[in-house]
């Protein structure tokens, strides 16, 4: 008889006992839980469908990026803490450091696995070296992906209320500003606070190869044209996302945070490290 227990079970029955025992480690499915930003929804779903591991997933709203980092951390930590840890080997994190919104994320009973990345673009491009190189060659670039086209909105009232622009008085309409500060100041403030074209000059669409049609690329191209920005289409690379869900966690690419530890920014090219949780 094959050994009992899911971990050692072969993918299909009927294999001789000795072969099963021998093949057990190879067939072992790791049970993981993913906590991810919804920006990766399509990429994660594709990677999850192809992984040998058994992965449950929770997606959190993109709007967490617009609130103060310590508030963002609260939400992500709550999602991690809601996982029934006894059912999983590790929690894999579908986030980057995200402007310190993940700084302080703590592993309680099982390890956390965190990509070494400043933001999601590293994961879309497949490596932080490639991102770094592209970023500094194209300082005025604004990236688009399926997720950034479909999910770049905040429809949660609570998150909207907490958003930094809202908290800083930077969410007012032009008419509201005219009313409050006069037409002349409103025009000045509008240029200072809302004119995105002021410093950006280029849209780059990252084509992940999972798009069913050319609409995302075309939409980005049209928006670039409308703003008078440059447009570039670059090929994405899902391999780093796949390695995250597959459990291929090389230490230069991922940080494993052991139980009782938390992640903290390094301020250098390693991006994050672990420290003992207080």
């Amino acid at each position: 008889m094959p050994k009992s227990g899911d971990d050692a079970a072969p993918p299909a029955g009927g294999q001789p006992e000795d072969k099963v025992a021998c093949a057990a480690p190879e067939w072992r499915r790791r049970k993981l839980h993913l906590v991810s930003c919804e920006i990766f929804f399509r990429e994660m779903c594709l990677a999850l469908s192809r992984t040998p591991n058994q992965v449950d997933a929770a997606f959190l709203p993109k709007g967490l990026h617009d609130i103060a980092p310590e508030k963002m951390l609260e939400h992500v930590q709550a999602a991690v803490d809601a996982i029934k840890f006894e059912n999983y080997e590790a929690v894999i994190i579908g986030y980057a450091l995200c402007n310190n919104g993940l700084a302080g994320l703590t592993a309680r009973e099982i390890p956390l696995v965190m990509p070494r990345a400043h933001d999601c673009i590293t994961l879309f491009l497949g490596s932080r070296e490639r991102y770094q190189d592209y970023f500094f060659k194209n300082p005025g670039v604004y990236f688009k992906t399926t997720g950034w086209i479909e999910r770049n909105r905040v429809d949660d009232g609570e998150l909207q209320q907490l958003s930094i622009p809202n908290q800083q008085g930077m969410n007012q309409t032009y008419e509201e500003m005219v009313e409050k500060y006069g037409a002349d100041n409103a025009e000045f403030l509008y240029t200072q606070l809302y004119d995105h074209t002021r410093n950006y000059s280029k849209y780059t669409y990252i084509e992940m190869g999972l798009e069913q049609d050319a609409n995302y690329k075309a939409q980005t191209h049209d928006e670039a044209k409308e703003r008078g920005w440059e447009f570039e289409n670059v090929e994405g690379d899902i391999s780093m996302i796949q390695r995250l869900v597959d459990g291929q966690w090389a230490s230069d690419e991922f940080l494993v945070v052991p139980p009782g530890h938390r992640l903290t920014p390094t301020g250098d090219e390693t991006i994050v490290r672990t420290e003992k949780a207080p």
Binding site: G169, M170, Q172, Y181, N185, F188, L193
Partner: peptide
Amino acid sequence: FYVPELLIAAR
């Protein structure tokens, strides 16, 4: 004061 008030005062 929030950012807009500070910006117009500075202006």
